[in-house]
C-alpha cells in the first residue's frame, strides 16, 4: 500500500524558510498572505495489504525517524 505522510513544524517553532518564502511572495505581489509554514511530504510504498497495518508501520517510521517530535508533527493523509 502507498501511504502518504506530511510533516509540519509545530506552532511555536520558528520557520525561517517559511518566512523568506512569505517575503518573496509578498515581493511578487501576493499581498494577502498571513503566514507561510514549510513542511515535508513522504510517499512510502510498504509491503502490506492491510491499510490499518500499513498506517501503523508508517506512523512508527514517523515516530522513530521521519519526524523529530520535539519540533515537528506528522499526519498520515492518504493510504491507497
Amino acid at each position: 500500500m502507498k501511504v502518504s505522510a506530511i510533516i509540519t513544524l509545530k506552532k511555536d517553532v520558528l520557520d525561517p524558510q517559511g518566512k523568506v518564502i512569505h517575503q518573496t511572495l509578498d515581493g511578487m505581489g501576493f499581498k494577502g498572505v498571513n503566514e507561510v509554514r514549510q513542511g515535508k511530504y513522504f510517499e512510502i510504498d510498504v509491503k502490506e495489504n492491510d491499510p490499518k497495518k500499513a498506517q501503523k508501520i508508517v506512523e512508527d517510521m514517523c515516530n522513530k525517524l521521519l519526524a523529530n517530535l520535539v519540533i515537528e508533527n506528522y499526519k498520515i493523509i492518504e493510504i491507497q
Partner: peptide
C-alpha cells in the same frame, strides 16, 4: 547528539538562513 536524544532540544536552520 540531539537527534539521538542524548542531549535535549534541537538545532534548527540559522535564523537568517
Amino acid at each position: 547528539l540531539v537527534e539521538s536524544g542524548l542531549v535535549p532540544g534541537v538545532l534548527l536552520r540559522n535564523k537568517y538562513l
